[in-house]
Structure formats: C-alpha cells, structure tokens
Amino acid sequence: YFQGQLNAMAHQIQEMFPQVPYHLVLQDLQLTRSVEITTDNILEGRI
C-alpha cells in the first residue's frame, strides 16, 4: 500500500467517525490495511 491509498482510506473513515483523531485512524490503518477492520476497531473502542 502506498501512503496516498492509506490517506484516502483514513479520510473515508473520518467521514464516518469525525470524532476520532486522523492520526489515530491512519496509525491503525497502517497495521490493518483495511477500512473494515479499522472501522470495527473504532466501534469496539480499541481506538
């Protein structure tokens, strides 16, 4: 994955969860590489 793709995914998640800091979303995406998994992590309070 290149950074631009991760940034696009992070923006997509931020639209759904504007209360979660962008850098935390991006940090999780770098591990998961998945909008779905990061979204689940937010919903389950891991982020």
Rank of each mutant, 00 (worst) to 15 (best):
Y1L: 13
Y1G: 11
Y1F: 13
Y1E: 13
Y1S: 13
Y1C: 11
Y1Q: 12
F2T: 15
F2C: 09
F2A: 12
F2D: 14
Q3L: 09
Q3F: 07
Q3I: 10
Q3K: 11
Q3E: 14
Q3D: 14
Q3H: 08
Q3S: 10
G4K: 14
G4D: 14
G4M: 13
G4P: 08
G4E: 15
G4S: 14
Q5K: 11
Q5L: 12
Q5S: 12
Q5D: 15
Q5N: 12
Q5C: 15
Q5T: 12
L6M: 10
L6S: 02
L6A: 04
L6W: 10
L6I: 10
L6Y: 08
L6Q: 04
L6C: 06
N7G: 10
N7S: 14
N7A: 14
N7H: 15
N7D: 14
N7W: 14
A8D: 11
A8W: 13
A8Q: 13
A8R: 05
A8M: 13
M9W: 15
M9T: 05
M9R: 04
A10M: 08
A10N: 01
A10T: 05
A10C: 04
A10V: 11
A10Q: 04
H11C: 08
H11F: 11
H11P: 01
H11Y: 11
H11D: 11
H11W: 12
Q12C: 07
Q12Y: 12
Q12V: 12
Q12R: 12
Q12F: 13
Q12A: 13
Q12L: 12
I13F: 03
I13L: 10
I13H: 00
I13Q: 00
I13Y: 00
I13A: 01
Q14Y: 13
Q14K: 13
Q14D: 02
Q14L: 14
Q14E: 05
Q14G: 08
E15T: 12
E15S: 14
E15R: 13
E15V: 12
E15W: 08
E15P: 02
E15D: 10
E15Q: 14
M16F: 07
M16Y: 07
M16S: 07
M16V: 07
M16I: 09
M16A: 09
M16Q: 08
M16W: 08
M16D: 05
M16R: 12
F17A: 01
F17E: 00
F17I: 02
F17W: 05
F17M: 03
F17S: 01
F17D: 01
P18T: 04
P18I: 03
P18F: 03
P18V: 03
Q19Y: 15
Q19E: 13
Q19K: 12
Q19P: 02
Q19D: 12
Q19A: 10
Q19W: 15
Q19M: 12
V20G: 00
V20S: 02
V20N: 01
V20D: 01
V20T: 06
V20L: 09
V20Q: 02
P21T: 05
P21S: 08
P21E: 08
P21K: 06
P21G: 04
P21C: 08
P21Y: 05
P21N: 07
P21H: 05
P21L: 06
P21Q: 05
Y22G: 04
Y22W: 09
Y22T: 06
Y22M: 09
Y22Q: 05
Y22R: 06
H23R: 08
H23G: 07
H23L: 09
H23T: 07
H23Y: 13
H23N: 10
H23S: 09
L24H: 06
L24V: 09
L24R: 06
V25R: 00
V25W: 01
V25N: 01
V25K: 00
V25L: 11
V25A: 05
V25P: 00
V25H: 02
V25Q: 00
V25E: 00
L26V: 09
L26W: 09
L26F: 09
L26Y: 10
L26K: 04
Q27F: 10
Q27T: 08
Q27V: 08
Q27I: 10
Q27K: 12
Q27L: 11
Q27Y: 11
D28W: 04
D28V: 04
D28G: 01
D28E: 03
D28F: 04
D28C: 05
D28Q: 03
D28Y: 03
L29T: 01
L29D: 01
L29G: 02
L29N: 00
L29W: 04
L29H: 01
Q30E: 14
Q30A: 11
Q30T: 11
Q30C: 09
L31A: 11
L31Y: 11
L31W: 11
L31D: 08
L31S: 11
L31E: 14
L31P: 01
L31K: 11
T32D: 02
T32H: 06
T32P: 00
T32R: 01
R33D: 07
R33L: 15
R33M: 15
R33I: 07
S34N: 08
S34K: 04
S34A: 04
S34Y: 04
S34G: 02
V35L: 10
V35F: 09
V35W: 09
V35E: 05
V35Y: 07
V35G: 05
V35A: 09
V35M: 10
E36H: 08
E36D: 09
E36S: 11
E36G: 08
E36Q: 13
E36W: 08
I37D: 09
I37K: 14
I37V: 12
I37M: 12
T38R: 00
T38V: 02
T38C: 04
T38Y: 00
T38W: 03
T38S: 03
T38Q: 01
T39S: 09
T39Q: 07
T39H: 05
T39G: 04
T39R: 11
D40Y: 15
D40F: 14
D40W: 15
D40R: 15
N41R: 08
N41Q: 01
N41C: 06
N41E: 00
N41G: 02
N41Y: 03
N41I: 02
I42P: 00
I42F: 04
I42G: 00
I42W: 04
I42C: 06
I42N: 02
L43F: 06
L43D: 02
L43R: 14
L43C: 08
L43A: 07
L43G: 03
L43P: 00
L43T: 08
E44P: 01
G45D: 05
G45Y: 05
G45Q: 06
G45A: 05
G45F: 05
G45M: 06
R46N: 07
R46Q: 05
R46C: 06
R46D: 03
R46S: 05
R46A: 06
R46H: 07
I47Y: 05
I47E: 01
I47R: 02
I47N: 02
I47A: 02
I47C: 05
I47S: 02
I47P: 03
I47M: 07
I47Q: 02
